[in-house]
Simulated scan of single mutants.
Amino acid sequence: MTADNVQVFQVGDVEVLRLVEWTGAFVPAADLVPGATQELWAAQAHWLAPEHVEPETGRAMVAIQTWVLRSEGMTVVVDTGIGNGRERPGSPMFDNWQGDFPGLLAQAGIRPEEVDVVVNTHVHGDHVGWNTTATEHGWVPTFPNARYLVPAADDAYFGPANGYAGGRRPDDRLMYEDSLAPVHRAGQVDLWEGSHRIDGRLTLEAAPGHTPGSAVLRLASAGERAVFVGDLVHNPVQIVAPGCSSCLCLDPVQSAASRRRVLARAADERELLVPAHFAGPGAVEVRRAGEGDGFAPGAWAALAGTRSS
Protein backbone atom coordinates (compact mmCIF):
# COMPACT_ATOMS: atom_id res chain seq x y z
CA MET A 1 0.00 0.00 0.00
CA THR A 2 1.37 3.41 -0.96
CA ALA A 3 0.48 7.01 -0.40
CA ASP A 4 -1.39 6.87 -3.71
CA ASN A 5 -4.05 4.68 -2.08
CA VAL A 6 -5.16 7.52 0.19
CA GLN A 7 -5.44 11.00 -1.31
CA VAL A 8 -6.89 14.25 -0.06
CA PHE A 9 -8.29 17.52 -1.33
CA GLN A 10 -10.34 20.35 0.07
CA VAL A 11 -13.80 21.67 -0.90
CA GLY A 12 -14.32 24.85 1.06
CA ASP A 13 -14.00 23.89 4.72
CA VAL A 14 -14.58 20.18 4.08
CA GLU A 15 -11.66 17.77 3.84
CA VAL A 16 -12.27 15.01 1.28
CA LEU A 17 -10.30 11.77 1.47
CA ARG A 18 -10.16 9.25 -1.37
CA LEU A 19 -9.51 5.63 -0.37
CA VAL A 20 -8.64 3.56 -3.45
CA GLU A 21 -8.99 -0.18 -2.88
CA TRP A 22 -8.34 -1.28 -6.48
CA THR A 23 -7.84 0.19 -9.94
CA GLY A 24 -7.76 -1.85 -13.13
CA ALA A 25 -9.34 -2.90 -16.40
CA PHE A 26 -12.97 -4.00 -16.15
CA VAL A 27 -15.29 -4.98 -19.00
CA PRO A 28 -14.92 -3.65 -22.58
CA ALA A 29 -15.78 0.05 -22.55
CA ALA A 30 -18.21 -0.46 -25.43
CA ASP A 31 -20.09 -3.02 -23.31
CA LEU A 32 -20.10 -0.85 -20.20
CA VAL A 33 -21.69 2.07 -22.07
CA PRO A 34 -23.46 0.30 -24.95
CA GLY A 35 -25.18 3.39 -26.33
CA ALA A 36 -21.87 5.10 -27.13
CA THR A 37 -20.91 4.57 -30.76
CA GLN A 38 -17.53 3.43 -32.02
CA GLU A 39 -17.15 6.88 -33.57
CA LEU A 40 -17.74 8.53 -30.21
CA TRP A 41 -15.17 6.34 -28.47
CA ALA A 42 -12.66 7.01 -31.23
CA ALA A 43 -13.21 10.78 -31.10
CA GLN A 44 -12.54 10.85 -27.34
CA ALA A 45 -9.70 8.30 -27.32
CA HIS A 46 -6.98 10.94 -27.10
CA TRP A 47 -8.00 11.86 -23.56
CA LEU A 48 -9.81 8.73 -22.37
CA ALA A 49 -6.68 6.58 -22.73
CA PRO A 50 -4.96 5.29 -20.72
CA GLU A 51 -6.62 6.35 -17.46
CA HIS A 52 -10.24 5.62 -18.46
CA VAL A 53 -9.90 3.17 -21.34
CA GLU A 54 -7.07 0.66 -21.67
CA PRO A 55 -5.77 1.31 -25.20
CA GLU A 56 -4.46 -2.21 -25.79
CA THR A 57 -7.72 -3.97 -24.97
CA GLY A 58 -10.45 -1.31 -25.14
CA ARG A 59 -11.56 -2.23 -21.63
CA ALA A 60 -12.86 0.44 -19.27
CA MET A 61 -10.54 1.37 -16.44
CA VAL A 62 -12.38 1.61 -13.13
CA ALA A 63 -11.58 2.15 -9.48
CA ILE A 64 -13.12 0.55 -6.42
CA GLN A 65 -12.94 3.39 -3.93
CA THR A 66 -14.58 5.16 -1.03
CA TRP A 67 -14.82 8.88 -0.31
CA VAL A 68 -14.63 10.15 3.27
CA LEU A 69 -15.71 13.67 4.19
CA ARG A 70 -14.84 15.56 7.36
CA SER A 71 -17.62 18.12 7.76
CA GLU A 72 -18.77 20.14 10.77
CA GLY A 73 -16.99 17.79 13.17
CA MET A 74 -18.44 14.65 11.59
CA THR A 75 -16.79 11.87 9.62
CA VAL A 76 -18.97 10.79 6.68
CA VAL A 77 -18.15 7.68 4.63
CA VAL A 78 -19.59 7.63 1.10
CA ASP A 79 -20.04 4.08 -0.25
CA THR A 80 -18.22 1.12 1.26
CA GLY A 81 -16.92 -0.98 -1.61
CA ILE A 82 -17.20 -4.72 -2.13
CA GLY A 83 -16.34 -6.15 1.27
CA ASN A 84 -14.27 -9.26 1.91
CA GLY A 85 -15.38 -12.87 1.76
CA ARG A 86 -18.82 -12.37 0.21
CA GLU A 87 -20.52 -15.01 -1.92
CA ARG A 88 -21.24 -13.38 -5.28
CA PRO A 89 -21.69 -16.25 -7.77
CA GLY A 90 -23.11 -13.94 -10.43
CA SER A 91 -20.19 -11.49 -10.20
CA PRO A 92 -16.91 -13.42 -10.56
CA MET A 93 -14.79 -10.34 -9.95
CA PHE A 94 -16.49 -9.69 -6.60
CA ASP A 95 -16.89 -13.31 -5.47
CA ASN A 96 -14.86 -13.82 -2.27
CA TRP A 97 -13.10 -10.51 -2.85
CA GLN A 98 -10.13 -9.85 -0.57
CA GLY A 99 -9.09 -6.23 -0.22
CA ASP A 100 -7.60 -4.11 2.52
CA PHE A 101 -10.27 -1.53 3.22
CA PRO A 102 -9.54 -1.60 6.99
CA GLY A 103 -5.92 -0.85 6.17
CA LEU A 104 -6.95 2.10 4.03
CA LEU A 105 -9.03 3.49 6.89
CA ALA A 106 -6.09 3.13 9.25
CA GLN A 107 -3.76 4.74 6.72
CA ALA A 108 -6.16 7.68 6.53
CA GLY A 109 -6.26 7.95 10.32
CA ILE A 110 -9.90 6.84 10.57
CA ARG A 111 -11.08 4.47 13.29
CA PRO A 112 -14.38 2.70 12.46
CA GLU A 113 -15.92 3.71 15.79
CA GLU A 114 -15.30 7.39 14.96
CA VAL A 115 -17.44 7.34 11.80
CA ASP A 116 -20.69 9.23 12.30
CA VAL A 117 -22.52 8.66 9.00
CA VAL A 118 -22.31 6.07 6.21
CA VAL A 119 -23.93 7.03 2.91
CA ASN A 120 -24.87 4.28 0.46
CA THR A 121 -25.55 6.17 -2.76
CA HIS A 122 -27.39 3.06 -3.92
CA VAL A 123 -27.71 -0.60 -3.06
CA HIS A 124 -25.29 -2.48 -5.31
CA GLY A 125 -22.73 -4.99 -4.08
CA ASP A 126 -19.72 -2.76 -4.75
CA HIS A 127 -21.21 0.11 -2.74
CA VAL A 128 -22.45 -1.57 0.44
CA GLY A 129 -19.92 -4.35 1.08
CA TRP A 130 -18.00 -2.88 3.99
CA ASN A 131 -21.22 -1.84 5.66
CA THR A 132 -20.52 -5.00 7.65
CA THR A 133 -17.63 -7.14 8.82
CA ALA A 134 -17.51 -10.90 9.39
CA THR A 135 -17.06 -12.04 13.01
CA GLU A 136 -17.47 -15.33 14.85
CA HIS A 137 -20.99 -14.14 15.63
CA GLY A 138 -21.83 -13.42 11.99
CA TRP A 139 -21.96 -10.16 10.06
CA VAL A 140 -21.93 -6.99 12.20
CA PRO A 141 -21.82 -3.28 11.28
CA THR A 142 -18.28 -2.18 10.46
CA PHE A 143 -19.03 1.28 11.88
CA PRO A 144 -20.69 0.59 15.23
CA ASN A 145 -21.63 4.20 16.06
CA ALA A 146 -22.69 5.39 12.61
CA ARG A 147 -26.09 6.06 11.13
CA TYR A 148 -26.36 4.34 7.74
CA LEU A 149 -28.29 6.43 5.22
CA VAL A 150 -29.92 4.13 2.67
CA PRO A 151 -32.37 5.21 -0.08
CA ALA A 152 -35.77 3.86 0.89
CA ALA A 153 -36.62 2.92 -2.72
CA ASP A 154 -33.50 0.75 -2.99
CA ASP A 155 -34.03 -0.86 0.38
CA ALA A 156 -37.55 -1.80 -0.67
CA TYR A 157 -36.52 -3.01 -4.14
CA PHE A 158 -33.59 -5.15 -3.01
CA GLY A 159 -35.15 -6.27 0.27
CA PRO A 160 -37.04 -9.46 1.17
CA ALA A 161 -40.52 -7.97 0.74
CA ASN A 162 -39.77 -7.63 -3.00
CA GLY A 163 -38.13 -11.03 -3.20
CA TYR A 164 -34.67 -9.42 -3.29
CA ALA A 165 -35.07 -7.46 -6.54
CA GLY A 166 -37.65 -9.92 -7.79
CA GLY A 167 -35.33 -12.88 -7.43
CA ARG A 168 -33.51 -12.16 -10.69
CA ARG A 169 -30.05 -12.84 -9.27
CA PRO A 170 -28.86 -14.79 -6.23
CA ASP A 171 -26.29 -12.04 -5.66
CA ASP A 172 -29.01 -9.58 -4.70
CA ARG A 173 -30.31 -11.78 -1.88
CA LEU A 174 -26.80 -12.56 -0.66
CA MET A 175 -25.84 -8.87 -0.77
CA TYR A 176 -28.88 -7.74 1.19
CA GLU A 177 -28.49 -10.43 3.82
CA ASP A 178 -24.77 -9.91 4.47
CA SER A 179 -24.46 -6.15 3.94
CA LEU A 180 -27.81 -4.53 4.83
CA ALA A 181 -29.88 -6.85 7.00
CA PRO A 182 -27.29 -6.90 9.82
CA VAL A 183 -27.28 -3.10 9.94
CA HIS A 184 -31.08 -3.09 10.09
CA ARG A 185 -30.98 -5.56 12.97
CA ALA A 186 -28.52 -3.29 14.78
CA GLY A 187 -30.99 -0.40 14.48
CA GLN A 188 -28.50 1.79 12.60
CA VAL A 189 -30.33 2.32 9.27
CA ASP A 190 -32.10 5.56 8.38
CA LEU A 191 -34.20 5.24 5.23
CA TRP A 192 -34.86 8.43 3.29
CA GLU A 193 -36.58 9.56 0.11
CA GLY A 194 -36.63 12.74 -1.96
CA SER A 195 -33.86 14.60 -0.17
CA HIS A 196 -32.09 14.41 3.17
CA ARG A 197 -29.88 16.99 4.85
CA ILE A 198 -26.92 15.59 6.77
CA ASP A 199 -25.55 18.91 8.02
CA GLY A 200 -25.23 22.49 6.87
CA ARG A 201 -22.92 21.50 4.02
CA LEU A 202 -24.10 18.06 2.89
CA THR A 203 -27.41 17.12 1.29
CA LEU A 204 -28.59 13.89 -0.32
CA GLU A 205 -30.83 14.11 -3.36
CA ALA A 206 -32.61 11.38 -5.33
CA ALA A 207 -31.27 10.72 -8.84
CA PRO A 208 -33.02 7.48 -9.85
CA GLY A 209 -32.47 5.27 -12.85
CA HIS A 210 -29.32 3.30 -12.17
CA THR A 211 -31.36 1.81 -9.34
CA PRO A 212 -34.78 2.95 -8.10
CA GLY A 213 -33.23 4.89 -5.23
CA SER A 214 -29.90 6.03 -6.69
CA ALA A 215 -28.78 9.29 -5.10
CA VAL A 216 -26.20 12.02 -5.27
CA LEU A 217 -24.57 13.79 -2.33
CA ARG A 218 -24.13 17.55 -2.71
CA LEU A 219 -21.42 19.44 -0.85
CA ALA A 220 -21.47 23.24 -0.58
CA SER A 221 -18.96 25.04 1.63
CA ALA A 222 -17.32 28.47 1.61
CA GLY A 223 -18.35 29.16 -1.97
CA GLU A 224 -17.10 25.82 -3.34
CA ARG A 225 -19.18 22.85 -4.45
CA ALA A 226 -18.89 19.17 -5.27
CA VAL A 227 -21.40 16.46 -6.09
CA PHE A 228 -20.73 12.78 -5.35
CA VAL A 229 -22.75 10.97 -8.00
CA GLY A 230 -22.26 7.27 -7.29
CA ASP A 231 -22.86 5.29 -10.49
CA LEU A 232 -24.77 8.02 -12.31
CA VAL A 233 -21.61 8.32 -14.43
CA HIS A 234 -19.44 5.21 -14.89
CA ASN A 235 -17.06 6.50 -17.55
CA PRO A 236 -16.14 10.06 -18.60
CA VAL A 237 -17.54 9.40 -22.09
CA GLN A 238 -20.97 9.84 -20.45
CA ILE A 239 -20.15 13.47 -19.76
CA VAL A 240 -19.83 14.02 -23.49
CA ALA A 241 -22.83 11.80 -24.24
CA PRO A 242 -25.16 12.04 -21.22
CA GLY A 243 -27.91 10.15 -23.00
CA CYS A 244 -25.82 6.98 -22.89
CA SER A 245 -26.51 4.90 -19.78
CA SER A 246 -24.38 2.03 -18.56
CA CYS A 247 -25.33 -1.59 -19.09
CA LEU A 248 -25.84 -1.79 -15.31
CA CYS A 249 -28.66 0.76 -15.16
CA LEU A 250 -32.04 -0.77 -14.31
CA ASP A 251 -33.88 2.07 -16.08
CA PRO A 252 -31.56 3.56 -18.74
CA VAL A 253 -34.03 6.27 -19.79
CA GLN A 254 -34.57 7.52 -16.25
CA SER A 255 -30.84 7.28 -15.57
CA ALA A 256 -30.11 9.47 -18.60
CA ALA A 257 -32.63 12.07 -17.43
CA SER A 258 -31.05 12.15 -13.96
CA ARG A 259 -27.57 12.38 -15.48
CA ARG A 260 -28.50 15.34 -17.72
CA ARG A 261 -30.01 17.17 -14.76
CA VAL A 262 -27.03 16.59 -12.48
CA LEU A 263 -24.46 17.46 -15.16
CA ALA A 264 -26.32 20.66 -16.02
CA ARG A 265 -26.26 21.81 -12.42
CA ALA A 266 -22.61 20.79 -12.05
CA ALA A 267 -21.72 22.89 -15.09
CA ASP A 268 -23.85 25.89 -14.12
CA GLU A 269 -22.88 25.96 -10.44
CA ARG A 270 -19.24 24.88 -10.85
CA GLU A 271 -19.69 21.69 -8.87
CA LEU A 272 -16.79 19.26 -8.94
CA LEU A 273 -18.15 15.94 -10.27
CA VAL A 274 -17.07 12.99 -8.10
CA PRO A 275 -18.22 9.61 -9.49
CA ALA A 276 -17.79 6.34 -7.65
CA HIS A 277 -15.59 4.55 -10.16
CA PHE A 278 -13.47 7.01 -12.12
CA ALA A 279 -9.85 5.99 -12.27
CA GLY A 280 -7.09 8.57 -12.72
CA PRO A 281 -7.66 11.72 -10.67
CA GLY A 282 -11.17 10.53 -9.87
CA ALA A 283 -13.00 13.87 -9.95
CA VAL A 284 -13.50 16.48 -12.66
CA GLU A 285 -15.11 19.82 -13.40
CA VAL A 286 -17.90 19.87 -15.99
CA ARG A 287 -18.55 22.58 -18.54
CA ARG A 288 -21.19 23.07 -21.19
CA ALA A 289 -20.14 22.38 -24.77
CA GLY A 290 -21.88 23.14 -28.02
CA GLU A 291 -25.63 23.54 -28.14
CA GLY A 292 -28.36 21.81 -26.17
CA ASP A 293 -27.37 19.45 -23.38
CA GLY A 294 -23.79 18.83 -24.44
CA PHE A 295 -21.04 18.79 -21.84
CA ALA A 296 -17.29 18.32 -21.70
CA PRO A 297 -14.79 17.56 -18.95
CA GLY A 298 -12.91 20.55 -17.59
CA ALA A 299 -10.05 20.53 -15.11
CA TRP A 300 -9.38 17.34 -13.18
CA ALA A 301 -9.06 17.44 -9.41
CA ALA A 302 -5.63 17.97 -7.92
CA LEU A 303 -5.34 15.26 -5.27
CA ALA A 304 -2.41 14.98 -2.92
CA GLY A 305 -1.17 11.77 -1.35
CA THR A 306 -1.35 11.47 2.41
CA ARG A 307 -0.33 9.05 5.15
CA SER A 308 1.37 6.04 3.61
CA SER A 309 1.64 2.86 5.66
Results as ranks from 00 to 15, higher is better:
D293M: 07
G125I: 08
Q7R: 07
R288A: 04
G223V: 06
R18N: 04
R169A: 07
W192S: 05
G294I: 10
S255D: 14
V20C: 07
V189Y: 08
H137E: 00
T211M: 01
L149C: 09
A220Q: 14
V274E: 02
N96H: 12
D251W: 09
V233I: 14
W67L: 02
Q238E: 11
I110P: 00
V123E: 03
R270Y: 06
D154A: 04
A264P: 06
A283W: 07
A36V: 00
H234V: 13
L191W: 13
E21K: 07
S308I: 10
I64L: 12
P208T: 07
W67H: 01
A152D: 12
Q238P: 14
V189D: 13
A60Q: 10
A186D: 04
I82A: 10
F278K: 04
Y164I: 15
A222T: 10
L48N: 06
E21F: 05
N5M: 02
P92W: 01
G73M: 08
P55F: 05
G24S: 12
S308R: 01
R147G: 01
Q188T: 06
D79E: 12
L48M: 15
V253F: 13
E113V: 08
W67T: 01
Q254C: 13
S71K: 06
R218I: 13
H196W: 14
P236E: 11
L250K: 09
H137W: 00
F228V: 00
R259N: 01
V53W: 09
R197L: 15
D155M: 07
V262T: 10
D251C: 11
M1S: 06
V62C: 14
G223S: 12
D172F: 10
P102D: 04
E21W: 05
A30D: 09
L248Q: 08
A222F: 15
R86K: 04
L174Q: 12
P89M: 11
H124L: 13
G280D: 08
L232R: 04
A42S: 09
E136F: 06
V117T: 05
A146E: 00
D178T: 08
V128W: 14
V20S: 08
I64S: 12
G166V: 08
T121Q: 10
Q98V: 15
W97F: 11
Q44Y: 07
I64N: 03
